[in-house]
């Protein structure tokens, strides 16, 4: 294992997103504040409660999820795609970096950005709701797995895309619906059948509910089941990405 190589790739990825603080820092600040204004206050959320939790507090785990998932995905997908378009992928392919090294470098970079934005989102939320962190370790477990899954998905999208618009297929047609049907702003328990059962096949539900369990000690699904399912998802997505990288899918002629 070329550990210096992996570290170099990771540091490079981090420096790249640190150079666009508008995207990484400012945008979560703004979007989180807007969500609180719109969903937490103006829609009458000030008085509302879900399962005994004030609505503004209830949506915090979902908002953290949104910031984290979007940024993890965006980082690996755009970084890999730009590397392909710029031609700097040649530097990576010619270097002694195998599929494992590339995978670890890109995923670690994207997870760093996702977790950073998740943390920032949470800090902004604190201003509105005060600290709510029932189970720190459990919370971190779900944050970590969510960041991992979306980093790998971003990597797969970046590998597959030939045109810039294709990068957005995935967020628009898959992530957006799954996210909004994933209980970010409501309890999936309250959905009528068959949507309630259908939502159990949506991995986002386990991520959001897992974070809710960790932060608020309230959950509609078992956190343990969530952790195992997400771990399985992360590992199988990573294995798929490894095979594609090792075969040089769309990066080697």
């Amino acid at each position: 294992m070329n550990t210096i190589g992996v570290r170099t790739l990771l540091v490079k990825e981090v420096r790249r997103f640190m150079r666009v603080p508008g995207q990484t820092v400012l945008s979560p600040l703004i979007s989180t504040s807007l969500y609180f204004l719109v969903f937490g206050y103006t829609l009458g959320g000030r008085q509302a409660e879900v399962d005994g939790v004030p609505y503004v507090a209830y949506i915090v785990p979902g908002l953290v999820f949104l910031g984290l998932a979007n940024n993890a995905f965006l980082n690996s997908s755009s970084s890999l795609f730009i590397t392909k378009i710029q031609g700097t992928i040649v530097d990576l392919l010619a270097a002694p970096l195998g599929a494992t090294e590339l995978l670890v470098g890109f995923i670690a970079g994207a997870m760093t950005r996702g977790l950073l934005v998740g943390l920032l989102t949470w800090l902004v939320a604190l201003v509105f709701t005060g600290v709510q962190l029932a189970h720190p370790a459990l919370t971190f477990g779900f944050l970590f797995l969510t960041a991992w899954v979306f980093s790998v998905l971003g990597l797969l999208a970046g590998l597959w895309a030939d045109k810039f618009e294709q990068i957005n297929f995935f967020p628009t047609f898959l992530m957006l619906p799954l996210t909004f049907l994933g209980g970010v702003f409501y309890s999936v328990h309250r959905l009528p059948e068959p949507f309630r059962t259908a939502s159990l096949f949506n991995p986002v539900v386990y991520m959001v509910e897992g974070l809710r369990a960790g932060m608020l000690d309230k959950s509609d699904v078992s956190p343990l089941l969530g952790l195992s399912l997400l771990l399985g998802l992360a590992v199988s997505a990573t294995a798929t990405a490894w095979v594609l990288l090792a075969r040089g899918y769309k990066i080697r002629n």
């Binding site: 210096i4 190589g5 170099t8 790739l9 990576l92 270097a95 002694p96």
Partner: peptide, 8 residues
């Protein structure tokens, strides 16, 4: 960065 990629 190039040195790093090559494990140096």
């Amino acid at each position: 960065i190039q040195q790093g990629y090559y494990g140096r």
